[in-house]
Amino acid sequence: MSVADVHVQQFAEDLAERLLLPLVVGGRLEPLPPIGEARAVVISEMPPNVVGESGPGLERARLAVIRRLCPVDDVMDFDSCEWLIACAVNDLLQATSPFLVGTFGKNRPRRMVEMVEGTLDRVTEPKTLARALMRHSLLSRLLELVRVDTEVSWWVGSETVRGIEPPARLVSWPSLRRVRTEQTKVGLAEMPGEQPWADVWIRALARVVAASPLTDLQSLGRRSPPFSMTGSTLGLLQTHAGRAVAARAIERGRFRGRAPELLRQAAEAVARVDDDAAGVVLRFADQVEERSRQMEELSA
């Protein structure tokens, strides 16, 4: 094991502990400093295994996510694409960090998003249903991610801090200065706010979600980024097993009631390009509707 290997391994352990594990099981998530496209490529070329303290926990948690959809006994190791996706998620979050801009770094978030786009260009569609399940086990809760913004107000003013604890200078002498704090949870898609680079950030987020077709289908009723059929999603629906797992993912998601209607709307968009693919989506919508009806009959 070379020195570079050691650094990659350590980096992977840190990424798993601070980003991936909280992303799967919930809790406090602290992204690593910006990784960048070049370092992501190095990691993906020699994909490490997570063997540290967070390794077994992450493995069990991913297995639990997958077992909601199909019975498996083991999870596969991270492949290069999954490491690229993990790095992309890290950098997407860091693009919204209040510490990134600084005094002269107004353009840094846009550069970060460009690097994320470059990283995602190297992510291919999942080749097998097993790989699609592995990606879903990482990103199934991505769209649940929130950031806590805290508004601190005192007797002559107020200030809002995003994603960090309020500095001591703002909350000191609370009774004398009549300090009040109010926390607000901001969803992932709202994190860029009204920034000029918000649209490219949302586009990059959409690509991250689309990289995991099961996650994409499970959240097909989300407001932002809006759902649309992609090559990986259509590829998943082309196989019998893929449709079965996708139908289960939708049943266990928040949008199972509206899923047939949303899928038919997506099929209309696909039909402008490819009638056969639209037919696949429509048949899948019928399948989801039929399963939903059967489930209701069983529960009744």
Partner: peptide, 14 residues
């Protein structure tokens, strides 16, 4: 295994 806690992003100085 899977807690119902929401994943929450917190940023550190860079």
């Amino acid at each position: 295994l899977l807690t119902t806690e929401t994943p929450t992003a917190w940023f550190s100085p860079l």
